[in-house]
């Protein structure tokens, strides 16, 4: 199956969602949620389609997308890194963990690497304060981290990818 075909099916799904909600009050946020599930993020083209479909302005849509932290303007990586900046992790130095990741991956928090492998985000408490500072990569939890641990962890994922090829 080609890439185009895949894109079309995403667009078709989005149009179905819009059609389902059209005309209902307060439709924008649920539509954005479902759209993000399809695309992984909310690029301009998707927001435009939603704005046109729901008959609201693009400014309205963009205002809502940027207000709520769940909505992302950036694609997410295959491996989604979330660094906890909750109180306990923060005082245990998770800020330095985030900086280290940012430095190694050459992206800022909220962004995704060019190869699409890693995306980096800060998050609030993940409920593992005993392990502070904590980060998660997809569903795996890494605790009691120091910045020196980071290169090895990232490398392990890169190696896994290299093996898979």
């Amino acid at each position: 199956m080609g890439v185009c075909c895949c894109k079309d099916s995403k667009e078709q799904k989005l149009d179905e969602i819009i059609a389902r909600y059209k005309g209902t009050r307060g439709a924008l946020i649920p539509v954005l949620h479902e759209a993000q599930e399809i695309y992984g993020y909310l690029p301009m083209s998707v927001q435009k389609r939603i704005a046109e479909g729901l008959n609201v302005s693009l400014a309205d849509v963009y205002g809502v997308v940027t207000f709520y932290t769940q909505f992302s303007l950036e694609p997410k990586g295959k491996y989604k890194i979330n660094v906890c900046l909750g109180t306990a992790c923060y005082v245990k130095g998770s800020g330095a963990i985030l900086d280290k990741l940012s430095q190694i991956l050459k992206i800022k928090s909220g962004q995704c690497t060019k190869d699409g492998l890693f995306s980096l985000d800060a998050c609030r408490c993940v409920g593992a304060c005993g392990l502070a500072p904590v980060m998660m990569i997809n569903d795996d939890v890494y605790g009691r981290l120091t910045p020196d641990d980071i290169p090895g962890i990232i490398k392990s994922y890169r190696d896994k990818e290299a093996e898979a090829v």
Partner: peptide, 9 residues
């Protein structure tokens, strides 16, 4: 016209 909106938080 809706060319502008409050953005971010």
């Amino acid at each position: 016209v809706s060319a502008i909106e409050t953005v971010d938080r």
